[in-house]
Design a protein around this nucleic acid. Structure first.
Length: 467
RNA sequence: GGCGAGGUAGCCAAGUGGUAAGGCCGAGGUCUGCAAAACCUCUAUUCGCGGGUUCGAUUCCCGCCCUCGCCUCCA
């Protein structure tokens, strides 16, 4: 049974499905107005490890992750791009899916889009208005009345004073919208149509407009997971206001408790500082692939720190990931050959037949609040002396699958096309070497190196690899 | 200012009231004509700083310093 830190109670709690069968959880997904960056993916990868551990423990999951395809940024940028909102977000959603697949993320069972659930959101607002938790402002927007929910601030542990402080700053901004609210800290559920929204508006009992950001998650959670569900996750920055607002909306619109467990991932930092576009250190998967790194290497880096601690991303860590994966791959390949196995077992096969076995210590680390670095340490400690048995091999894959790691071909095993002239030079060197003409042999090797090729000799043959 | 998360070797990063996993890099060795690969060995008397509790603290308590995040549209 997985013990997972819970943000709300600030303690580690066992993650038990409410219905005793399936772990039902929701993760806040991306806003599709551009490529997701590796910081976003740190959160998704962490959630993926959580899901894999739960499933490998024998508990099936119901994983729901939304696509935010309507908000200020998607509208703004789609208009800028001269595309309809639907066309614009479809493209970025496809890119997101491609990245997820490259990173070996298990696809959610349900991936609802905000635009496809406008009626659900409108219904939820109607309920909130009917129950006195929401009101229409003078500007045609609808707001949630924070004062009507006594537990507001419980997740983020913000006191009334802090909430008011934020509100007073908003007031100083003199945004005319703010005056439509009863309290400056109230947040918007339905945004009245504005000229800059273009064609992107929907009808509602309060006039044309579009839903506020926080509402979509609440509405789609109710639709797919009900009033109570097991776990909700996201990055730490979503704790406030996003998740706080979700709790308020959902608890007031339903009679449920909403999420029974909260998982938040710490931020990814770059070169010791925060990631931001202005600093030029915001990387996407494509950026890193262009520099020659693989998605699997990126995944390794993203899980190499505990999800609850800030992780510093550097290119050195990416290089270290490559070497580490290569070490694992080498031993795994040798083991596989010895036992005559072919393809690694699939996630599904491991769920039904897999056990931690030899790597029980690594598995314990994972069950202990997803201690991935600890688990990796256990794996590396044993991998060199792993017994040549099928059980050991399956146990290894049980852990690797929990981490969602795939292994690259061991270095030197891949076949590369060697140009004929290089091939000829290499052959000439081999002949010189066979004739024990070391001087000629070394000269030819240097020539080959200058051309970008390395010669690796073995007892009675050699291989040519690109430098 | 408030709230929260962190500060462990050159880099990344676990962990524990009893004297510091693992990875990467680096060094030495075995092997090799020399390399490469592989394998072996080594690399923090010390866990941000100062106090306290304790037989004993990196681990608990107090104070301080630093980093990061949130404080209404950021994973």
């Amino acid at each position: 049974m997985l013990k997972l830190h819970d943000t709300l109670t600030r303690s580690e709690r066992e993650l038990r499905p409410l219905d005793g069968k399936t772990l039902r959880f929701y993760c806040c997904g991306p806003t599709v107005y551009g490529p997701a960056h590796i910081g976003n993916f740190r959160t998704f990868v962490g959630q993926d490890v959580m899901r894999r551990v739960v499933e490998l423990s024998g508990t099936p999951t119901l994983h729901v992750r939304n696509i935010t395809d309507v908000d200020d940024k998607t509208i703004r940028d789609s208009i800028k791009a001269g595309q309809t909102l639907a066309d614009f977000t479809r493209g970025w959603t496809a890119k997101f899916h491609a990245d997820c697949q490259a990173l070996n993320l298990l696809p959610p069972h349900v991936e609802p889009s905000a635009v496809a659930h406008i009626p659900h959101q409108v219904r939820m607002i109607e309920t909130l208005v009917a129950r006195g938790h929401a009101y229409a402002g003078s500007d045609g927007s609808v707001y949630f009345r924070i004062a009507s929910f006594k537990d507001y601030g419980r997740l983020s542990h913000l006191e009334d004073r802090e909430l008011r402080l934020g509100a007073s700053e908003a007031a100083s901004a003199q945004d005319s919208d703010e005056y439509s609210k009863d309290s400056l800290a109230d947040f918007v559920l339905w945004k009245a149509r504005k000229p800059e929204d273009g064609d992107n508006f929907w009808p509602s009992p309060w006039g044309e407009g579009r839903p506020g950001w926080h509402l979509e998650c609440s509405a789609m959670i109710q639709e797919y997971l009900g009033d109570d569900f097991d776990l909700h996750g996201g990055g730490v920055d979503l704790i406030f206001p996003h998740h706080e607002n979700e709790i308020a909306q959902s608890c007031c619109a339903t009679h449920g408790k909403f999420a029974h467990h909260w998982m938040h991932s710490a931020h990814l930092m770059v070169d010791g500082g925060k990631m931001s576009k202005s600093l030029g250190n915001l990387y996407t998967l494509a950026d890193l692939e262009q520099r020659g790194y693989t998605a699997n290497e990126v995944r390794y880096v993203l899980i190499s720190g505990h999800y609850h601690k800030p992780l510093n991303f550097t290119f050195d860590s990416l290089t270290a990931a490559r070497s580490g994966l290569q070490t694992l791959a080498k031993h795994e390949a040798a083991l596989r050959e010895k036992i005559g196995a072919s393809q690694p077992p699939s996630h599904g096969e491991l769920i039904t037949h897999g056990t931690p076995g030899l790597f029980a210590d690594a598995w314990e680390n994972l069950l202990n609040d997803l201690n991935v670095p600890g688990a990796l340490g256990c794996v590396f400690s044993k991998i060199k002396d792993i017994p040549a048995t099928r059980d050991a091999w399956l146990s290894l894959w049980f852990i690797l699958d929990a981490l969602g790691l795939t292994l690259p071909p061991p270095a030197g095993s891949e076949t590369v096309d060697v140009p004929a002239d290089i091939q000829a030079l290499a052959e000439k060197r081999w002949q010189a070497k066979q004739a024990k003409d070391w001087a000629a042999s070394d000269t030819l090797r240097k020539e080959l190196e200058a051309a970008g090729w390395l010669i690796k000799d073995s007892k009675d043959s050699y291989t040519i690899v690109p430098k």
